[in-house]
């Protein structure tokens, strides 16, 4: 039941993009086509889950015992940056088709604040064990994907719409995102805090 609550909360109620404002750059940047959005979601899910596991272990077995939690920001970002490189190298060797599909998105992920954000949030939550953190990471990645893919679908139809000239491009994208965020607010209160 706990896990179900974590998933519903991350997907709908506290959606990482639309309610917590993490990962806005790829949300606005690569959401022109549904296809690229799916690719981006795959890459983010992959990195986010591995990054959360590794940073969780580092936080609890290295930083806390040594009493150097102030090194958290530096350690986490280094872990994520090297992890992205590692994933890229391994994918290239092990699964070329997957690398073809996700490859171009991987370098972008280092500066995707959703990955670092989820890693930090997961170690900050009280009573989160490793399994909770993994579920939390998967749920947030899916929440990111949900927002991205829905938004891409809207933007594809928006290309055909008659938008007032000054609003064309990015401004209308933000306004649409605002309306989408408003729709997601309808889920507020579904999960007790």
């Amino acid at each position: 039941m706990e896990y179900v609550l974590i998933i519903i909360s991350a997907l709908f109620v506290n959606n990482i993009v639309l309610a917590q404002f993490l990962g806005i750059c790829p949300f606005i940047g690569v959401s022109n086509k549904v296809g690229t959005s799916v690719g981006m979601t795959g890459a983010v899910t992959f990195v986010m889950v591995i990054a959360t596991i590794v940073t969780y272990l580092i936080q609890n077995y290295v930083l806390v015992p040594l009493n150097i939690t102030y090194m958290q920001t530096i350690t986490f970002i280094l872990v994520i940056a090297s992890l992205v490189q590692l994933v890229e190298i391994i994918l290239k060797k092990v699964s070329p088709p997957l690398y073809q599909a996700l490859g171009i998105f991987l370098p972008l992920i280092t500066t995707n604040c959703a990955v670092l954000g989820v890693a930090i949030l997961a170690v900050q939550k009280d009573g989160f064990g490793l399994s909770h953190s993994v579920v939390f990471a998967i749920a947030n990645a899916l929440g990111f994907g949900l927002a991205l893919i829905v938004f891409a679908g809207i933007r594809e139809s928006l290309d055909l719409a008659d938008v007032p000239k000054p609003l064309k491009g990015v401004p209308i994208a933000f306004i649409v995102a605002g309306l989408l965020a408003m729709a997601f607010m309808g889920f507020a209160g579904v999960v007790p805090n």
């Binding site: 639309l18 309610a19 404002f21 000054p166 609003l167 990015v170 401004p171 209308i172 994208a173 933000f174 306004i175 995102a177 605002g178 309306l179 965020a181 408003m182 607010m185």
Partner: peptide, 18 residues
Amino acid sequence: LAPGAFIALGYLIVLIKK
């Protein structure tokens, strides 16, 4: 709340472009 951030920024971008 969250939606206001997106909408306000969208219109501010229009204003700055102008």
